[in-house]
Simulated scan of single mutants.
Amino acid sequence: MFPQILHYTLHFLAPGLLAYVFFRSKWKLAWGIMLATMFVDIDHLVADPIFMVNRCSIGFHPLHSYYAIGVYFLLLFFKKTRIIAVGLLFHMVTDAIDCLWMA
Rank of each mutant, 00 (worst) to 15 (best):
L10Y: 03
I50S: 01
D43N: 07
P15Y: 06
L75F: 15
A19W: 05
V21E: 13
L100P: 00
V53S: 04
P3Y: 09
H91C: 06
L35G: 06
F77C: 04
M38H: 14
H64T: 07
A85K: 05
Y67L: 10
F60E: 11
I5A: 08
V46D: 02
K80P: 00
I42V: 12
F77A: 05
I84E: 04
F73L: 15
F22R: 05
G59Q: 04
Y20L: 15
T94G: 13
L74F: 13
A14C: 08
L63T: 12
D41Q: 11
W101D: 02
M102Y: 13
Q4H: 11
A19S: 07
N54C: 03
V86Q: 06
P49M: 04
V93Q: 10
K28Q: 11
A103Y: 12
Y72P: 10
F73G: 09
H44P: 03
H7S: 03
H11M: 06
D43W: 03
L75A: 09
V40R: 03
L17G: 12
V40K: 00
G70L: 13
H44I: 01
M1E: 15
L10Q: 06
P49R: 02
G59F: 11
F2K: 15
C99Y: 01
I83H: 00
F39Q: 13
A85H: 00
I83S: 14
V46G: 01
G16S: 04
S57Q: 08
W101Y: 12
A14Q: 01
L74H: 07
G59Y: 07
W31L: 12
G16T: 00
W101C: 02
V86M: 07
C56Y: 05
W101H: 08
A14P: 04
I50H: 02
S65I: 06
D48H: 06
H7F: 05
M92D: 11
L13A: 15
W27E: 04
G59M: 11
D43E: 10
P3V: 04
D48C: 03
A19K: 14
Y66H: 10
V21W: 13
L88N: 11
C99A: 07
L10H: 10
K79Y: 05
Y67N: 07
G32N: 02
H61K: 04
P62M: 05
A68V: 05
S25G: 02
H44V: 01
T94I: 00
F60Q: 05
A14F: 13
P62R: 03
K28S: 12
G70A: 15
K80F: 09
